[in-house]
């Protein structure tokens, strides 16, 4: 076993993920949604009130479209895409009967699980990159671009606005990677990939319902989904690094707990299929 072996396995796994038509279709949907949001806002015009007031800026500034796209996609579409890939990671192999062959390789189960999770993280970051790039492309094509007005009422130059898009994309990707750990843990519990994906999405929806109940505000900091919205800290002046830092710690806690659950289950599991 050469020392380059670990990366080789990861590279082959990533290659498989990004060659699968289903995953490419998912990324395609992620690219289309920002364009649809842009076209919709172009046709409907502005006039939005409430939290959407920020989105009405899109009509005058295409850069804001990317923020709008993340705002629209973070509750369901992005996590769904990540849940499909992560929920499939172990259960899919078990379902197809290929897990047995993977385990005959000398790499070991811990290593295989690490490769699977590395692949999920790469997919999560790619998914957010696709949203950001599609949002920017549609924004530049459909609308004029210029300085960005933040939630705090401050107007920052275009370059600063682009950096903030990068921050939102990275923070969101970290949140999706944390969800990936949860989905991976669920994936080790079953041999039906659709069950793992559905269970993850159900947990996600339940978390968002709990988060919306004022009487349960005490449990909010423990829910993964409530930290996703903190990405709006990138649109404040000064940038809300304190809350986003807490969010990253919450993500880390999720990765540690569900990563170890996946490990305990996967390394102790009898692989029959």
């Amino acid at each position: 076993m050469s020392r380059r072996d670990p990366l080789r396995l990861l590279r082959s796994e990533v290659g498989l993920t990004f060659r699968r038509p289903r995953n490419l279709a998912l990324l395609g949907v992620l690219a289309v949604v920002p364009v649809l949001v842009g076209v919709g806002l172009r046709i409907a015009g502005d006039g939005a009130e409430g939290p959407q007031a920020f989105l009405s800026q899109v009509a005058g500034n295409g850069v804001v479209l990317t923020f709008a796209a993340f705002f629209v996609m973070v509750p369901l579409i992005l996590p769904l895409a990540v849940a499909v890939v992560a929920g499939d990671a172990i259960a899919g192999e078990a379902n197809l009967g290929t897990l047995r062959y993977l385990l005959t390789a000398p790499a070991g189960r811990t290593h295989l699980l690490a490769v699977k999770y590395g692949n999920i993280v790469i997919f999560a970051f790619t998914a957010c990159l696709v949203v950001a790039v599609a949002g920017l492309a549609a924004g530049f094509a459909l609308f004029p671009v210029g300085p960005v007005t933040l939630l705090s009422g401050t107007t920052v130059p275009l370059a600063d606005g682009l950096l903030r898009i990068g921050l939102v994309a990275l923070y969101t990707a970290a949140g999706m990677a944390a969800l990936g750990a949860l989905a991976l843990a669920v994936s080790t519990l079953t041999e039906a990939p659709i069950g793992a994906i559905a269970a993850t999405v159900v947990l996600l929806v339940v978390a968002q319902v709990l988060q919306a109940i004022p009487a349960l505000s005490a449990i909010k900091p423990y829910l993964l989904t409530s930290w996703w919205n903190v990405a709006d800290g990138a649109l404040r002046d000064p940038i809300g690094f304190d809350r986003m830092g807490e969010g990253l710690l919450a993500y880390l806690a999720y990765v540690v707990i569900f990563g170890s659950i996946a490990w305990a289950r996967f390394t102790g599991k009898d692989v029959t299929a």
Binding site: P51, A53, F54, L151, S152, G153, R236
Partner: peptide, 11 residues
């Protein structure tokens, strides 16, 4: 004084 809200802010 800044009061942050979800995707909004009062200052």
């Amino acid at each position: 004084l800044a009061l942050p809200g979800p995707m909004s802010e009062h200052d």
